[in-house]
């Protein structure tokens, strides 16, 4: 589960000295959104990117997804530098981003359809993944007919059915209610254990990160940078009923919260005033 695994699975992600500068069109200044981020995600590993807003976690995800380009550094998936979005990196969005004009099944079958899989085959594949996320019986519904939690299950199935090397998740459960969120988190760990996709999960919720991940990349803001990478010492399977009372869970949450709260440390000489 950790980096000393004896074999290398596909789906290894390397983020090397990644930097992103934006030009502020109003002032003409360039703003450093992300400063030299370095980390690796092993094939089949579950890593969370955690931090407050302005820490560059979504910037990292958008660069890895190929939606925006970095100003320096590189991103490698299984040793290959990425360029632009691609089917090797599937994204689960906070907004779900399901196609409202397609049925649930057609949404899940979209990636395979783009790969040229024939209709019968991709229909079967979609139904299989819908079963995996517990949505059998909803294949012919349209997304707007489902609850938010169910829509995001479709979002997860849609990415998994496309068998990407890396699954990127951008605060995927931030817009569902707390009860549903806990169910979805448990479901996600179950599915991850079953299928072992590589997952990069962006969140600002400490407990969520600790509950889900093998390792947490804790980020600090202004400029966004990696603060520390924390190993999560919890066994699997994980369910909230057991985890909430678990001392190691509490200790890890406490430790990570400390990292997020700690004042700016001395390694940065000066920090200019906030914009």
């Amino acid at each position: 589960m950790s980096s000393d695994a004896t074999y290398q699975r596909a789906g290894r992600l390397e983020v090397r000295a990644l930097e992103k500068r934006y030009d502020d069109e109003r002032t003409g200044d360039s703003v450093l959104a992300l400063e030299r981020a370095d980390f690796e995600v092993e094939g089949g590993e579950f890593v969370a990117l955690l931090g407050p807003s302005g820490c560059g976690k979504t910037t990292i995800l958008n660069i890895v997804a190929g939606f925006i380009s970095q100003t320096a550094g590189e991103v490698l998936v299984d040793g290959q530098a990425i360029s632009g979005p691609g089917a090797d990196r599937g994204v689960v969005f906070q907004s779900f981003a399901l196609f409202p004009w397609k049925t649930v099944r057609a949404n899940v079958a979209f990636g395979p359809k783009m790969r040229g899989m024939d209709k019968q085959e991709r229909r079967q594949l979609a139904d299989e993944y819908l079963e995996l996320v517990g949505l059998s019986g909803f294949e012919d519904k349209y997304p707007h007919e489902l609850s938010g939690g169910m829509q995001q299950r479709v979002g997860v199935a849609r990415v998994l059915a496309n068998q990407p090397a890396v699954m990127l998740m951008d605060e995927p459960f931030a817009s569902v209610d707390a009860q549903t969120r806990m169910t979805l988190q448990e479901e996600l760990t179950r599915i991850w254990q079953e299928r072992r996709p590589t997952i990069v999960f962006v969140t600002h919720d400490v407990e969520e990160a600790v509950f889900l991940a093998d390792r947490i990349v804790v980020l600090a803001p202004h400029p966004g940078r990696v603060r520390e990478i924390v190993e999560v010492p919890l066994t699997r399977p994980r369910v909230w009923d057991d985890i909430l009372g678990n001392d190691r869970f509490k200790e890890t949450v406490h430790h990570v919260l400390g990292l997020l709260k700690a004042p700016q440390v001395t390694e940065q000489p000066t920090v200019e005033a906030e914009t």
Partner: peptide, 22 residues
């Protein structure tokens, strides 16, 4: 929504298919 565009592209939709698919 830009996410719709991004979702299609990262699911492997080539640019020319974006017309009919999105």
């Amino acid at each position: 929504a830009p996410d719709m565009h991004r979702a299609a592209r990262s699911l492997g939709a080539p640019r020319y298919r974006m017309f009919t698919e999105v």
